[in-house]
Design a protein around this nucleic acid. Structure first.
Lengths: 199, 199
DNA sequence: TCAGAGTTTGTACTGAAAGTCTAAACCTAT
DNA sequence: ATAGGTTTAGACTTTCAGTACAAACTCTGA
């Protein structure tokens, strides 16, 4: 993949909805050329192939996520507060970039098979989560978990598929409501404070 | 798709590992014919195409899940206990059928785009989860949630991607440990009882 | 202004693989 | 035994990803 000029990048984003709706394999490279306005020959000048177009979109989005998540995770607050902030950051970005995000999750299997993307997902999500779990256990704000990897996967799955659910079934949901739902379940649990409500 | 005879079904399962490792698009129908021992012409006699083979595997697995989950969800216990049982049932089935399950999640995007599969996932997971959340709120064992759909997606995502994580990164994990991790996070939350541990 | 390097694009081509078609062989039950 | 479904080989068509290449265009530095 050659370095992608800004103007071209902007055009490539026009393919995100198409890719999200159809998936990569059901999308012809000619269709991508058509909706983006970038001729096929030009696409092949910059990208190694159809899949490389998707990789570009993913990397772009994941670098955003990595940035926001890192800020949230490394703020000088308790582990629990950091975890809340990470959940919020990820969900807000999902609501801001619904198409790329749907495409990413739609081809999650393929993404996981691409080393560049797998690494980017680890860096953007898993590593910060594991750090936060350790920090929270140390400062007493989070329950200590032995199985950090399993816990990180659980959190990632909860946030990601919840976000996806909102994006595909009710894209106009208030992000704040989504954030509250996921934060409450993951932090306080589903059995949490029912006594207060139902004494 | 014609009704698939038992003996043929058994052979088709031999393709699950291949499909899980490579994804559907990187798997040639000739490869499927080779590993299953079923000639290409026969595959096309029973299935409408490559994708239909995957649909068959998914439907078969999801009907197992639907069965076990329904039993767990409809047992005469509290909503919270039912929720624990559903989480356990899903994770146990995932550990029992790792290949189909990896294939399913690897092509989750495609699966979600196939109406038959989307319906099957709703029936197997979402509907029972929503019933349980309502039951738990009624019997006081679960926190009442307004956003049931969001909550169900959160639970589904947590269980599914946690399970996937175990299957791909450490397939020999003790299922009991995986179950405990996910149940604890979802039911008691990550801030749960740290006071007991860290008074 | 020119030369050269890099970029952009149209068009034609190649090759791989999905899926179709057909006819022959083969069960299996009445 | 024969009719109706099943199984299979193999040849064929079609669709697309990806390649090749040449012409045109843009920009930069001398």
């Amino acid at each position: 993949m050659r370095p992608v000029p800004t103007q071209l990048a902007a055009k490539i984003y026009r393919a995100a909805d198409l890719l999200a709706d159809q998936g990569l394999d059901d999308t012809k490279i000619e269709e991508i050329a058509e909706v983006t306005g970038v001729p096929k020959a030009t696409l092949y000048y910059y990208f190694a192939g159809k899949q490389d177009v998707l990789v570009f979109l993913f990397q772009d989005f994941l670098s955003l996520v990595a940035g926001d998540v890192a800020v949230a995770a490394d703020a000088p607050v308790s582990g629990a507060a950091g975890l809340r902030a990470v959940i919020e950051a990820q969900l807000r970005l999902m609501f801001q970039h619904p198409a790329v995000c749907r495409a990413l999750i739609g081809d999650l299997g393929r993404a996981a098979r691409l080393p560049e993307i797998a690494t980017a997902i680890n860096g953007a999500f898993y590593d910060p989560l594991e750090r936060l779990l350790a920090a929270g256990a140390a400062d007493g704000s989070l329950r200590p978990v032995e199985d950090t990897i399993g816990a990180a996967a659980t959190i990632f799955g909860a946030v990601t598929l919840a976000g996806l659910g909102y994006l595909v079934t009710s894209p106009h949901t208030d992000p704040d409501q989504a954030i509250t739902t996921v934060q409450t379940i993951l932090l306080e649990g589903l059995t949490g404070d029912h006594d207060r409500v139902n004494p």
